[in-house]
Write a protein that binds this DNA or RNA. Sequence first.
DNA 1: CCTTGACTTAGAGCAAACTCTAGGTTTTAT
DNA 2: ATAAAACCTAGAGTTTGCTCTAAGTCAAGG
Lengths: 126, 126
Amino acid sequence: MGYSIGKAADKTGLSAFTLRYYEKEGLLPFVERTPSGTRCFKDSDFEWLAMIQCLKNTGMSIKDIREFVGWCMEGDETLEKRLAMFCAQRKEVEAKMAEFQSYLDKLDWKIAYYENAIHDVRKIKA
Amino acid sequence: MGYSIGKAADKTGLSAFTLRYYEKEGLLPFVERTPSGTRCFKDSDFEWLAMIQCLKNTGMSIKDIREFVGWCMEGDETLEKRLAMFCAQRKEVEAKMAEFQSYLDKLDWKIAYYENAIHDVRKIKA
DNA sequence: CCTTGACTTAGAGCAAACTCTAGGTTTTAT
DNA sequence: ATAAAACCTAGAGTTTGCTCTAAGTCAAGG
């Protein structure tokens, strides 16, 4: 059997619109159809979708994800390319986490500053 | 004196177009002008810009940053609101970092998988 | 059998955040 | 003094990633 697009939407948190859009953009060449044309998501498709969401949410564009998916469809000749892509993406994520850590520090500094400021204003008002 | 928009662009890494856009959107009400109308960025403005970049790069919309900047212009009555905003943003950043950590793990798993796969393909071909 | 709801497509619409152009003014460097 | 470069505004255009509409088909429950 498998999942209709609505069920797949529920399962992934993406909208049915988005899933259709992803397919149109070449991100889901593995999703099959019933004889009448309805999309039929298999269990293994959700692992693909999780990978796609990982890449998208770490900043990869639809275009680059499409290229990666294309490589996967081509077979073993593209293993090195795919490994290189994952390594590059890993680097991106590490850089982003470092950046976010610095922003977290900045926010903590501001929070402490504001807590003090509020405290001082109260003292003056009292 | 101060910095022209071009110098400010160099200093911040944002384009002059972007800086004008930010001003138009109400993000930079503190930037002054020379008598002839040229923008003149002061040293303190770059601290504002760093804060704006922090908020933007951690996912805050232009609209919400404008609201925050507006509060700052209003004075001490908005201290609590601003503190609450920083705390909320801190939470966002923490959540994002956790999410990114899980993506990093996923990528590491894939990288190990691909390294093995490539190794195995070589063995078979040899 | 029939209604209701979910599915299909193509293509239009939308929001965000820039990014650039045109036409004009000012600053800077020679 | 003048030419080149940088500035100004208003507004148009671009990109990305959805998000929805219209018109029609299909499938499941009563």
